[in-house]
C-alpha cells in the first residue's frame, strides 16, 4: 500500500525532475479521492518556481494496489491515451512510472480535471449516457486501440472476457470455487446470438466520470475497458453502479429513450449475470491483495470476502432459476 507520508518527499523529487523546476517542488499533503477501490487515487497540489516564475498546479495520482482487480498500469495508460486521442473525454496522462521502487507501487500522474465525480443531476446523467453511446460507435479498429486482447468475432470477444475474469479469480482464490466455475461455463453456453463488438468502458456510471456545469469533463477508470458488447456497459450502469440513483428498470427505460437501444429480457438477464460474474471475480483479487500484505486495509478484506460472496450468491440464484426451465440444447 502506498504510504502517503513516505511517498510525499519521493514524489517531490520525481516531479522536480519531470517539471524542470528551479528547486525541489513543494508537494502538499496528498488528498485521498474517496472513490473506487481498484487504485489508490490522490489529488496532488504542488507549487514550484521555474525560470523564476512561481507556478501552482494540481495533478491526480493513480497508484496500483498489489494486483487489485487484475489491472495493469501500462495497459490502462496506453488505452486511456488512445481513447483521448480518438476524441473521447479522458484526462491527459503526464507521466507513467512502472518501477515500484520509486513510490512503492507503479503509478501514473494525470492533469487534474476540474469538476465533480459525485452524484450528477439527471440532465448530466442523460448527457453521460449519450456520450457513452457515442463511445460505443467509435471505429475501434481504425483507432488502433492498444488493447489487452483483440478479438476476431463477437463470440470470441465474449469468451476472452469470461476467460480473463476467471483467470483474475484464479489468481486471487485460496481454493477452487465451484459456483464461479459453473457461472463461467454457463456464460459460455448461453452467450447471446446477437453479440456486437465495440469499445466497452467496463465500469461506467455515476462516480466514474467527472462533470461540471452539466457537461461530461472526463470518463475515468479505464482499467476494465475492452472490446465487447455495449449491453455490458448498459447493464453495469443500470444494475450495479447506477443502482443508488435509480431502479434498474428506470435506467433501462432511460437508455432506450436516449440511445434507441432496446435490451431484450433474455439479454438483460444474461448481462446481469455476466457483470456480477465480472464483479465477483475481480473482487476475489482483493483477498490475495489483503492476505499477501500488499494492502491490508479493511476495505480489501470486505471486498475479497463479503462483496465477492454476495455477488456470487446473486449469480448462483439466477443460474439456479434457469435449471427450472426447459433446456434448449
Amino acid at each position: 500500500m502506498l504510504n502517503i507520508e513516505n511517498a510525499r518527499p519521493l514524489l517531490a523529487q520525481y516531479l522536480s525532475a519531470h517539471l524542470g523546476s528551479d528547486g525541489i517542488v513543494e508537494v502538499e499533503p496528498f488528498e485521498r479521492i474517496t472513490i473506487g477501490h481498484s487504485r489508490g487515487m490522490h489529488r496532488i497540489n504542488v507549487h514550484y518556481t521555474k525560470d523564476g516564475e512561481e507556478i501552482r498546479k494540481s495533478f491526480a495520482l493513480r497508484a496500483e494496489q498489489g494486483g487489485m482487480f487484475g489491472g495493469d498500469t501500462l495497459i490502462e495508460v496506453r488505452l486511456q491515451r488512445a481513447v483521448r486521442n480518438a476524441g473521447i473525454p479522458a484526462a491527459r496522462i503526464r507521466w507513467v512510472e512502472l518501477d515500484a521502487n520509486v513510490l512503492g507501487e507503479p503509478f501514473f500522474i494525470m492533469d487534474w480535471v476540474e469538476g465533480s465525480s459525485g452524484p450528477p443531476d439527471m440532465a448530466t446523467m442523460e448527457r453521460y449516457i449519450l456520450e457513452l453511446h457515442e463511445m460505443h460507435q467509435l471505429d475501434w479498429r481504425k483507432a488502433e486501440l492498444p488493447l489487452r486482447t483483440t478479438p476476431s468475432t463477437p463470440l470470441h470477444a465474449m469468451h476472452q472476457q469470461i476467460d480473463h475474469w476467471l483467470s483474475v479469480h484464479h489468481w486471487g482464490r485460496p481454493r477452487p470455487s465451484p459456483l464461479i466455475e459453473e457461472a463461467a461455463t454457463w456464460l459460455k453456453i448461453n452467450a447471446p446470438k446477437n453479440l456486437r463488438m465495440c469499445l466497452v468502458h467496463g465500469d461506467p456510471g455515476p462516480a466514474n466520470f467527472i462533470h461540471k456545469d452539466g457537461s461530461v469533463q472526463a470518463f475515468t477508470d479505464w482499467e476494465f475497458s475492452h472490446i465487447g458488447d455495449p449491453n455490458e456497459d448498459w447493464l453495469f450502469l443500470s444494475a450495479m453502479r447506477g443502482r443508488a440513483l435509480k431502479e434498474p428498470s428506470e435506467w433501462r427505460h432511460l437508455i432506450q429513450q436516449i440511445t434507441d437501444t432496446e435490451i431484450t429480457d433474455s439479454d438483460w438477464f444474461y448481462w446481469d449475470i455476466y457483470n456480477h460474474f465480472k464483479g465477483s471475480c475481480a473482487n476475489t483479487s482483493a483477498l490475495r491483495v489483503f492476505t499477501s500484505g500488499a494492502n491490508m486495509a479493511p476495505n480489501m478484506a470486505a471486498i475479497g470476502t463479503g462483496l465477492h460472496m454476495s455477488m456470487l450468491q446473486r449469480i448462483s440464484q439466477m443460474i439456479g432459476e434457469t435449471y427450472n426451465q426447459p433446456k434448449t440444447k
Binding site: T305, G306, L307, S316
Partner: peptide, 20 residues
C-alpha cells in the same frame, strides 16, 4: 450444499458488509 456453504460464509462477513 455448495450454495448453503456459500451462504454460511457470506453471513459471517455481514459485519464488514454493514460497515463498508
Amino acid at each position: 450444499l455448495l450454495v448453503s456453504h456459500l451462504e454460511a460464509s457470506l453471513a459471517e462477513t455481514s459485519p464488514m458488509l454493514m460497515s463498508f
